[in-house]
């Protein structure tokens, strides 16, 4: 007899300025009968278990520094924590009616979530400033050894990624503010 598969592990790439995609994907998986058990590896890897197809709402939050009350409040309200990492929380709840449960009542909270993320990127970039000032008189020619060249390439790519993330998050904030009007 063929044994049916009961667990599933999937990777899904998503970005902090556009978490709607991962929420929608996880909700679609639940509708197909895959229950999200946990998320790990930078919240990019998702573990599922076979379940009945269910109407599920998945919400992502980036709340900043939280007190222990944060978790209690969500759990009292019927939400289950399925993943946590790098300041992000992934919450899951089942529902039956037409009204889709939300962790936020308005757009303001979504804007604040993106603003906290933007603050992180800007802080990291500003933190590089002393390093750039100290190295301002160095020439690129000085990066002669392979190790220093590899470092330079990695470093430049990393900075570009963070700059891109900051720009993407800012434009998300602008889009959300437009939705308010």
């Amino acid at each position: 007899m063929k044994k049916e598969r009961n667990t599933l592990i999937r990777w899904f790439c998503w970005w902090g300025w556009d978490p709607d995609k991962v929420e929608a994907w996880l909700e679609a998986m639940a509708a197909e009968g895959w229950r999200l058990v946990k998320a790990d590896r930078l919240l990019l890897r998702f573990h599922f278990r076979r379940d009945e197809p269910k109407k599920v709402r998945i919400c992502t939050d980036y709340p900043g520094n939280v007190t222990p009350e944060y978790r209690t409040l969500f759990e009292d309200a019927g939400w289950e924590l399925v993943g946590e990492g790098m300041g992000w929380y992934i919450w899951r709840t089942e529902y039956s009616g037409a009204e889709r449960p939300e962790i936020f009542n308005g757009v303001d909270e979504l804007i604040e979530r993106s603003q906290r993320l933007l603050l992180l990127f800007v802080t990291v970039l500003l933190g590089q400033l002393p390093f750039w000032i100290l190295n301002a008189n160095r020439r690129l020619i000085e990066f002669t050894t392979t190790a220093s060249k590899v470092f330079l390439v990695f470093y430049v790519v990393l900075i570009l990624v963070i700059v891109f993330a900051a720009v993407a998050t800012s434009s998300q904030i602008v889009r959300l503010k437009a939705r308010k009007r």
Binding site: D61, W79, E102, F104, N105, G106
Partner: peptide, 14 residues
């Protein structure tokens, strides 16, 4: 009619 989301409530209370 009004169901407060836990994220909204946590933010407001803080």
């Amino acid at each position: 009619r009004l169901r407060l989301g836990p994220g909204t409530l946590y933010g407001s209370l803080s």
